[in-house]
Structures are given as C-alpha cells and as structure tokens.
Simulated assay, not measured.
Amino acid sequence: MGKGGSGKTTLAALFARHLRSRPLLAVDADINQHLAAALGADPAAAAGLPALGAHLDEIKDYLRGGNPLIASAAAMLKTTPPGPGSRLLKVVEDNPIYDRLVTDVDGVRLAVTGPFSAEDLGVACYHSKVGAVELLLNHLVDGAGEYVVVDMTAGADSFASGLFTRFDLTFLVCEPTVRSVGVYRQYVGHARDHGVAVAVVGNKVEDADDVAFLRAEVGDDLLCWVGRSAFVKAAERGRFRPIDELEPDNAAALTRMQAALDARPKDWARYAAQAADFHVRNALAWGNDRAGADLTGQIDPQYTLTH
C-alpha cells in the first residue's frame, strides 16, 4: 500500500512477477484497477476480467459450506470468519471460485475486485467490493513458499475494513517526499495498534540523498528501495521484458522483500482473533440490524486456521 501515485501497483506487479514460479495468487483490491495492465495484460482484456465483487453471493455460498453457525449465505458479512464445516482455500487448487474468477496474466494468477462503476455512484461503497477479498483471505490457508500479493487502496482508505490485518507483512511504498512520508506515519499509527507488521520500500529513489531522507524519516522500517528504472518505463509504455532483465539493484530489492516476508512467523491464533474482532464490530454496527439476527454467533471461539 502507499500514497496514490507512489508506485504501489507497479511494485506489486514487479513482486508478483518475481514470485510467479512459486505458488502465487495476486489480487487487485485497489479502486483504480491497474494491476492486470501492470502485469502485461492488454488494456481491453484487463477491463473485461471477471470481478470478485460481482460474484460475492457465489463466493459466500461456496465458503459457507456446511458451517452450522451460518444460517445462510445471505447472512454472511464480509467479515464472517470460517468455522466448523466451512470450505477453506489453498493458494493454488481447483475450486469453482478460482475456476471462474482467477485469470492467468503472463504466468501470474490474478483476481480483481472490479472497478467502481457508474451504477455504484451514490448507492454503493467500494469497500463492499473489497469485502470479497476479505472473505477470501479469511478462509485462505497458506504455507511456507506460498504467496498472496494484494494491491491495496491508497492511503488511509485501507482502514475502512479489517482487510489491512489479513497479511503477514505490509509493504508500504514510500517516495522520498514529505507527503509520502506523511501517509507512512498515518498508516503505521493505525497499523501498529493492531499488531500489523510494516516494512517500507522506497520508490523513485535517485541518489544517496533520497535514501538518507527516507532513513531519517522512517528509521529501521526502511527495508529496501527501488531506483528509477528503464525496465519499468518500458513496461509503462507497453513493452514488457522478462523479469530477469530488471536492473540488478532493483531485482535485489524484490529478493529482500521476499526474504523479509519468508521470515515472518505464522500466528494463526492472532489472525483468528482479529477476524473475530472485526466481525463483531461489523455485526454490532450494521450487520445484525440488516439480518435481523445476532451474527456474532457465527464465531466459533475455539476455531483456528492451521496449515
């Protein structure tokens, strides 16, 4: 995630391409749906990808499975956690959700939430579409050497749902500017209240002064940085080269990101507790009234995901 225009979609695409020989799922959860194009999809084809947000009822019905705590798929919220009888997802497997809604883009398996359309104006919130991603991640079990890369909405919009807690590590893309550092401070102020791990990746770094500025502003959170790139510029003009042609220093940054992610321990108990917390918040704030039932009863306090 990061400030709008910081390069987070570009970096998400580079990181996904770096990981594409591994079990991988990439998800575009940004209101500006550009990840497919950044991965090399033809713009017309990218605009026609099947959208998670348009198939939310089907996603709920599949994930609910035989969970006796959930009366119906219609009673599921975006925050509903899995429980006994729920269908869980692996990063790579055959299931009807992936079959219908995941598309191969130059070797990267990609799902998209779908754009904010004219029909949504004045009647819908984009986070209702992102809710499909939150549901998927609540029910997804990944192991060592498996990856899910999500391009998030810009800035503080990420905090409009519990989605920001669903990751082992958040890479905050930060330009060497005061405005970009301001988004970093705002983000970590919220994220660390929830135990969310954040690593800063500098972008558009041109010289030692840029590195010094970032290090002074974000301290030990600075993991690595990406410089100006002819490889990226070519991709932005529609000329996609093999990822092994990325400049060595920039490729080293992607390797550093992967190593930092691989080093993060799995804490399934905390993950389940956070899912339950946000589900209770949503149920009490609006879900119970809409459903005419107490949806906090969908939580099994003994249930924890394990690989």
Score class of each variant (00 low, 15 high):
residue 186 Q to R: 12
residue 269 A to F: 08
residue 108 V to T: 14
residue 55 H to N: 12
residue 46 A to L: 06
residue 208 A to W: 01
residue 204 K to E: 04
residue 90 K to V: 14
residue 204 K to H: 09
residue 281 R to H: 03
residue 36 A to M: 11
residue 212 A to N: 12
residue 46 A to M: 06
residue 65 G to W: 15
residue 137 L to P: 03
residue 46 A to W: 05
residue 19 L to R: 08
residue 14 L to N: 07
residue 254 L to A: 12
residue 266 K to G: 02
residue 286 W to Q: 01
residue 220 D to G: 08
residue 116 F to D: 10
residue 243 I to K: 02
residue 107 G to N: 10
residue 37 A to H: 07
residue 130 V to C: 07
residue 149 V to M: 02
residue 302 Q to L: 15
residue 297 G to N: 03
residue 206 E to T: 11
residue 276 A to C: 09
residue 221 D to N: 09
residue 128 S to D: 01
residue 50 P to A: 08
residue 216 A to Y: 07
residue 202 G to F: 05
residue 196 V to K: 01
residue 123 V to R: 09
residue 230 A to L: 05
residue 240 F to P: 01
residue 266 K to N: 09
residue 182 G to Y: 08
residue 278 F to M: 12
residue 17 R to A: 13
residue 100 R to N: 00
residue 198 V to I: 15
residue 125 C to Y: 07
residue 107 G to I: 14
residue 83 G to S: 08
residue 6 S to E: 10
residue 257 M to L: 14
residue 94 D to K: 12
residue 283 A to T: 06
residue 55 H to L: 00
residue 228 R to Q: 14
residue 241 R to F: 08
residue 8 K to F: 04
residue 276 A to W: 10
residue 288 N to H: 02
residue 260 A to V: 00
residue 237 R to I: 00
residue 214 L to D: 01
residue 80 T to P: 01
residue 161 S to R: 06
residue 33 Q to L: 09
residue 259 A to W: 01
residue 274 Q to F: 03
residue 174 C to A: 09
residue 218 V to T: 08
residue 289 D to T: 07
residue 38 A to I: 10
residue 44 A to R: 11
residue 187 Y to R: 02
residue 160 A to I: 00
residue 134 E to K: 11
residue 166 R to W: 02
residue 210 D to R: 02
residue 188 V to K: 02
residue 164 F to K: 03
residue 174 C to T: 15
residue 23 P to D: 07
residue 28 D to N: 07
residue 85 G to A: 11
residue 228 R to A: 11
residue 15 F to H: 04
residue 162 G to F: 11
residue 113 T to V: 15
residue 193 D to P: 00
residue 73 A to T: 06
residue 81 P to V: 12
residue 258 Q to D: 14
residue 38 A to F: 11
residue 286 W to G: 00
residue 191 A to F: 10
residue 112 V to H: 05
residue 169 L to F: 04
residue 1 M to E: 09
residue 123 V to I: 14
residue 294 D to K: 02
residue 228 R to P: 00
residue 109 R to L: 13
residue 249 D to G: 04
residue 257 M to G: 03
residue 303 Y to K: 05
residue 163 L to F: 08
residue 276 A to G: 10
residue 32 N to Q: 07
residue 271 Y to D: 15
residue 149 V to N: 01
residue 268 W to D: 15
residue 19 L to D: 12
residue 33 Q to S: 10
residue 7 G to V: 13
residue 198 V to L: 09
residue 153 T to R: 06
residue 71 A to C: 04
residue 221 D to F: 09
residue 72 S to Y: 07
residue 42 D to E: 07
residue 23 P to H: 07
residue 279 H to L: 07
residue 45 A to P: 00
residue 147 Y to R: 04
